[in-house]
Write a protein that binds this DNA or RNA. Structure first.
Length: 572
RNA sequence: GCGGCUGUAGCUCAGCGGAUUAGAGCAUCGGUCUUCGGAACCGAGGGUCGGGGGUUCGAAUCCCUCCAGCCGCACCA
């Protein structure tokens, strides 16, 4: 179907094109009319004509028959009011549309999304939360839009720490080490290795030798290393299941994957004449970057000791994602501190010709998770907060809240619901603010059932479903049409019709919070409707109409939440 | 020093391709209703949109500048 927004846009565009080809109508929802087109104002400015004249011209040219009426207001605003018949028709189509009006992409793009990226042999902590949650939401949104998502979990599985980790594994014995790792207490494993490394010179020496062996490809060392990796990946999978994240073990393509491609990267850069030796290191100096002394800032590709740094790996990854994965879009869901690093990586990749103009490459930046003191979120004792612990605590709170309100749930139902509510709370809190901002992790606030929270949206959905449960018989929408004579109904209907543009804007800007804003607004429209409009006690056509609005609202909420990676249980 | 991000109601945040009256949630206060699940709804108070300039008929939104906070600025990822 063509969304309501798109119908309006096309009609307006045709009229605008007659006045000034390509002029943007700047169409958006409005509280003045149903929609407003502000493009007249800039068009007037651009042509030097009085806005009202232009507005009148557009109104004369635009064909909105059967769709809407247009009024000129103020200096030259175009307020649009949808016609009842058009709304009825659009809502009627929605009843049979599982996509709730969102068109599927005509050409599926390959979208490579790099997110989560935990470290092998290290616990996942709050620092991984945002990348994981935001990245997964974007992945779900892209898939729904009809694109082919290639998720890349760029785990830290290489580097000097692996010398000590492997030696620690040897010390423990493989069986003991695997047991220790599979319990999920990765931090104590890492800490133990670290401690030995710091206090035991002999261990330190062994660790260094082990790094050399690892890099040289020594078979036994690689085998031991792969134990660490596979145990960790298995652990990550558990965390992802707990969080309901779509990343699979196959998506893990760690830093080590690029090892054998790094020589090539350097050679290519050299042949392109981009490589410069500086202080013994091989660097690229992309224009426009300076250090604190105002001197050109290098991207160090190969260190003085001839080892490769992360820049080389990231460059190899860009190249791989364009050449081999045929990515049309490359997204990196990585925190704000690495902004300059990625700018440089992208700049160098463009210089080297690895990143064609038509490939969109973007660092999807997000801010920090802060504690109540507005500083980086840490435990009281100053340690990083484990993701699993965070979820467990959220689940306990959700469980307690459910226990207080529903004694009729079975134990297993309550546990299952608590898990769903807790995930919703944590994810929605993360997704609902503009991602570049830091946000304060406040479990009390996010798990509240009132206000702009995940659980509130789940609740709105559950209330809707309960109406259909009370109905007893199965309902179908065959007899429904939309007169929308009660303002609350019409207001809700307008919200329903706006789902496609809300989704598309969120996706285009890579801003899941826009979808959150939409869903919360829809939920509020629904509750207002719910107060004003009895459903089950209504009769005849009015009852069918209201049931249909409930059905559409429930489905829109459920779909929208699912695109954020949040479940919408039928009962709470 | 250079660069980036952030600064909107007591608190947490939307709005920032300029445009008609600056919004929401929480909290506070006051109401509604013998609830299709009250985990609800309605209303009120509360804002020099960090400060100051500028562009514009019109700026929270664009430009400049200053202030505050956080982050980055060569061999750790």
């Amino acid at each position: 179907m063509t969304s309501t927004y798109d119908v309006l846009l096309r009609r307006l565009q045709a009229a605008f094109d007659l006045v000034a080809p390509g002029a943007d109508p700047v169409l958006r929802q409005s509280d003045r009319g149903d929609y407003q087109a502000n493009g007249v104002m800039s068009l007037a400015k651009q042509t030097g004509r009085p806005p009202r004249d232009v507005a009148e011209q557009i109104v004369g040219l635009v064909d909105l028959v059967g769709v809407a009426s247009a009024d000129i207001a103020g200096p030259g605003f175009l307020n649009l009011t949808l016609s009842p018949s058009f709304m009825n028709a659009q809502l009627g189509v929605l009843l049979g549309d599982a996509r709730m009006g969102v068109a599927s992409a005509s050409r599926a793009k390959n979208v490579v999304i790099d997110y989560s990226a935990p470290n092998v042999a290290k616990e996942m902590h709050v620092g991984h939360l945002r990348s994981t949650v935001i990245g997964d939401a974007l992945a779900r949104m892209y898939r729904f839009a009809g694109h082919h998502v290639i998720a890349r979990n760029h785990v830290g599985d290489w580097g000097t720490p692996f010398g000590m980790l492997i030696e620690h594994l040897v010390d423990l014995g493989e069986e003991q080490a695997m047991a220790s790792l599979s319990i999920g207490d990765l931090d104590s494993f890492y800490r133990a290795a670290r401690t030995k490394f710091d206090v035991d010179d002999d261990f330190k020496e062994r660790s260094r030798a082990r790094v050399v062996a690892l890099q040289a490809g020594d078979a036994e060392t690689r085998r031991l290393w792969s134990i660490l990796v596979s145990e960790s990946v298995a652990y990550f999978a558990e965390v992802y299941t707990k969080l309901d994240i779509t990343l699979a073990p196959e998506d893990v393509v760690g830093e080590s994957y690029y090892n054998d491609k790094l020589d090539d990267v350097v050679r290519d850069l050299d042949q392109a004449g981009l490589l410069v030796e500086s202080d013994g290191a091989l660097c690229v100096f992309p224009p426009g970057f300076t250090n604190r002394d105002g001197e050109p800032l290098p991207l160090i590709v190969q260190k003085r000791d001839e080892g490769y740094g992360y820049a080389a790996t990231d460059l190899a990854a860009v190249r791989d994602r364009v050449r081999n994965l045929h990515g049309d879009e490359l997204l990196y869901v990585v925190g704000a501190p690495q902004a300059q690093h990625f700018e440089m990586i992208f700049a160098v990749a463009r210089l080297a010709g690895w990143l064609p103009e038509n490939v969109r490459c973007e660092h999807v930046i997000f801010g920090n998770v802060l504690g109540p003191d507005r500083k980086m979120f840490k435990t009281r004792s100053g340690e990083t907060v484990k993701l699993v612990g965070l979820l467990d605590e959220a689940t306990e709170r959700a469980y307690a809240a459910l226990e207080e309100r529903h004694s009729d749930l079975s134990e297993s139902e309550r546990i299952h619901l608590a898990v769903q509510v807790a995930r919703a709370a944590v994810k929605y809190a993360d997704l609902s603010t503009e991602r570049q901002r830091d946000y304060i992790f406040d479990l009390d606030r996010m798990i509240a059932f009132e206000g702009d929270t995940g659980p509130y949206l789940q609740y709105a959905h559950a209330r809707l479903r309960s109406i259909f449960r009370r109905l007893g018989s199965t309902w179908n929408s065959d007899g429904a049409s939309f007169a929308l004579e009660v303002p609350a109904q019409r207001h809700l209907a307008l919200g329903l019709l706006a789902f496609p543009e809300a989704f598309e804007l969120a996706l285009a800007a890579l801003q899941p919070h826009r979808l959150c804003v939409y869903l919360f607004d829809l939920a509020q429209r629904f509750t207002a409707f719910y107060e004003a409009c009895p459903v089950l006690s209504a009769e005849g056509a009015l009852r069918e109409e209201r049931l249909a609005l409930c059905d559409l609202t429930a489905r829109t909420l459920s779909l929208g939440l699912s695109l954020l990676g949040i479940e919408a249980p039928d009962q709470m």
